[in-house]
Design a protein around this nucleic acid. Structure first.
Lengths: 249, 249
DNA sequence: TTAATAGTGTCTTTCAGACAATATTAT
DNA sequence: ATAATATTGTCTGAAAGACACTATTAA
């Protein structure tokens, strides 16, 4: 702000109308695949295309708008605990002229990490929302391909230096399950032994529940110990992606 | 988007007016101090308070709006090379209802790193803009205190894993000058010997010009070698801040 | 029994940080 | 001459990554 332009009698009608929406990159892991929540567009423009869920920001904070939108599309209700465990953060704002053919629309994009969620109930309020593996989420409406790409890159980077991978897991999880989350999001396998030692050595990443899983892995192995998310907000030292060009030029 | 709400005859006048602006956290280093560009507000609200420079996003991308705003406030002109060397990135969007008492305003905040710039010419177009050491930039208008805080934290974090410190330096610089930039932004001294070795060991951080400065330090010492920014986009391994609580809980 | 998994141990290499040493130059 | 600075060297400890090993369990 600080615009002398509208200090004195500002007339809204004198300016071209703009709209502000949120678009949501909601990620979850289903069947060992990283999935994003998409909606089917019924009408033009981009009728028949899939899009990120989103909507107008009403008389609320952008954060609240994003959370509301997520709740509506997934059918989750506040107060049941699931929605409360979702990690939500602002991603970036997209506002190129022409990104929406109808009018000037600025979209504040959000990124959400959710533990494995059920298929949205088509009945509730979710027009037609469903989880799609990210590799198959192409040819989206508007500039949503690039919003999704930005969201994925952010998510992958965040796993390196924050404990957010636990946001994809249930309340209690094994080290193997956590490793699987990293593998799925990063798209590459991690060395089991080194990962195990690393996770336990980073202070505050996970804490032991003292419990042991009731059975071992699907194809054998001892019963693993159970952990829950720790209280760290940042991982130090970080857990860096193995395959990365030594430095991105 | 994907809002069925405005697929059919959408009437702009039916919605409360919103405005979209940019606010700029422009940082530079002057006299070994980290400074931010502020403007003086002449009229209400917050008359007499200082604010981040900003303005409406017109028929242009938000990035272009931010760059235009920076050029206007600093008096810099495109094509002279200085503005082209400024690093600009989107910071975050602020849109809480009530952040501007006049109407609903969403502000797409930007962060800029500039090499030491002259005091803006009051005459040009800059209403009344000047550089202020960041510690003295308090009690800003609107929610600009928190935008500035977010910008500073982003800047400090970015120095760790990107070569952006070079954006504060001139075309050619010495390792000492680079170290001074880190010290000023982070607010703590760095060990000269270790910093020197570290910078030269990270691939693509800096490249030698083959030249040597014409004179040594202000209080003696050999003539240092000159370097320019390398082609790395990320520092690997990163250059982490020395004083950091082992992990932020 | 077989094969897969959980968890631990060891070794090598890399790197950060502390500290020292030497050479060079402004004052 | 003195003091500050540039640059390089050395050492220690932390940590990453490769690899090996044992114990445990599903099928």
């Amino acid at each position: 702000m600080g615009e002398e332009e509208f200090l004195t009698g500002y007339d809204p009608a004198a300016y071209p109308a703009v709209a502000v929406t949120t678009d949501m990159v909601a990620l979850t892991i289903r069947d060992d695949r990283l999935c994003v929540l998409l909606v089917e567009r019924a009408e033009h423009p981009f009728a028949g295309h899939r899009a990120l869920p989103g909507g107008f920001v009403r008389d609320e904070t952008p954060d609240a708008a994003a959370l509301r939108e997520l709740a509506e599309e997934t059918g989750l209700r506040a107060g049941e605990g699931v929605l409360e465990r979702v990690h939500l953060e602002q991603l970036k704002t997209y506002g190129d002229p022409g990104r929406d053919p109808r009018m000037r629309v600025f979209s504040v994009a959000y990124l959400a990490f959710a533990p494995s969620l059920p298929e949205p109930l088509a009945g509730s309020d979710a027009s037609a929302a469903y989880w799609v593996p990210v590799e198959e989420a192409t040819s989206l409406a508007f500039d949503h391909d690039s919003i999704l790409a930005d969201g994925l890159e952010r998510a992958r980077a965040k796993l390196e230096y924050t404990p957010l991978a636990t946001a994809f897991a249930g309340d209690e999880f094994t080290i193997s399950e956590l490793r699987k989350i990293y593998a799925v999001v990063w798209g590459e396998e991690l060395h089991a032994g080194n990962f195990h030692r690393k996770v336990l050595s980073v202070p505050g990443f996970v804490e032991s529940t003292g419990q042991t899983a009731t059975r071992g892995g699907e194809r054998g192995g001892p019963k693993p110990k159970l952990y829950r998310a720790g209280d760290a907000k940042l991982l130090h030292p970080a857990l860096l992606r193995p395959t990365r060009e030594d430095d991105v030029r």
